[in-house]
């Protein structure tokens, strides 16, 4: 059975963590146990070592993307990549998107360097449309204030961006990743090009039911982010809520429909 994690991260020696290799190995081992056939992952610059995680410098963006490409090469088919960019450096971001997609990446990762509804994101979205790749956008579910360390966006701001770029698929990151997920779902409901990624440490009862009610199984994408047990738990919980056909859509078919064709639709060897 195919299972695509649309929200994964890896580490590398140039990042802030000494235990980078253990964390990567743990992700792959847990993924094997869960049955993940493809991790679609990103590296956010130097993870805070040389520039802030959510405001990565151009040099760190390149280093992180290079490391991501190396991990993809190490695990062909099993690991795919998002090109992480900082939209404050427009020309650099566009160049990096071209470079990384040409090297095999299949999506764009926008974190929290610039608010989602800011016009500076438009050239990045135009590049996504030209290339036919989705944008995974870090979201704070109902941002009531500015949180330290990031210029976070919420679903209302992402939907504003999505309306300006109706041909681009946007992935609303980690609905369980903190904040008021119901607020996000109300915002995402009418935006047909916004997909909800189920990752995040939050495992609230009612969250998955609300996702189904708001966007339906056709706009839900399975993911784990940095807590793989919560991802697996949500998958198990969904088995009791929906039909096998709907579950297949969430497990991989929806992802396969928005990513370019190199995304595998069968289990990795």
């Amino acid at each position: 059975m195919t299972l695509i994690d649309v929200h994964a991260h890896f580490h590398y020696p140039g990042g802030a963590r000494a235990d980078w290799a253990e964390r990567n190995a743990s992700r792959l081992a847990a993924g094997k146990r869960i049955g993940i056939t493809c991790h679609v992952a990103s590296i956010l610059g130097s993870w805070g070592r040389r520039s802030p995680t959510y405001f990565p410098s151009p040099d760190d963006v390149v280093a992180g993307n290079d490391a991501m490409l190396a991990i993809m090469r190490e695990h062909p088919g099993l690991v795919q990549g998002y090109a992480c960019v900082n939209p404050n450096y427009t020309n650099h971001a566009l160049g990096e998107i071209d470079r990384c997609l040409a090297a095999g990446m299949i999506g764009i990762k926008l974190a929290a360097s610039r608010r989602a509804d800011d016009p500076l994101l438009d050239p990045v979205c135009a590049a996504a449309e030209r290339a036919g790749v989705p944008i995974l956008h870090h979201i704070w579910q109902h941002r009531r204030k500015d949180w330290p360390g990031q210029e976070a966006s919420d679903a209302v701001e992402l939907v504003t961006l999505a309306r300006r770029h109706p041909k681009v698929a946007f992935i609303l990151a980690h609905i369980g990743g903190g904040g008021d997920w119901l607020h996000s779902l109300h915002a995402a409901r009418p935006a047909s090009n916004v997909y909800v990624d189920l990752s995040g440490s939050g495992v609230d009862t009612g969250m998955l039911e609300s996702c189904l009610d708001a966007v339906g199984a056709g706009r839900m994408l399975w993911g784990a982010d940095i807590t793989m047990e919560t991802g697996w738990a949500k998958l198990r919980h969904l088995e009791n809520l929906i039909s096998p056909e709907e579950l297949e859509r969430i497990r991989w078919k929806n992802a396969a429909s928005i990513f370019p064709s190199q995304l595998p639709s069968s289990p990795a060897p």
Binding site: D204, T205, E229, A233, K234
Partner: peptide, 16 residues
């Protein structure tokens, strides 16, 4: 922590 949290979470972490 149910019913605030889905019980599958604690089982999944044991299984991992």
């Amino acid at each position: 922590g149910m019913p605030l949290r889905i019980p599958e979470n604690s089982l999944a972490k044991l299984d991992l």
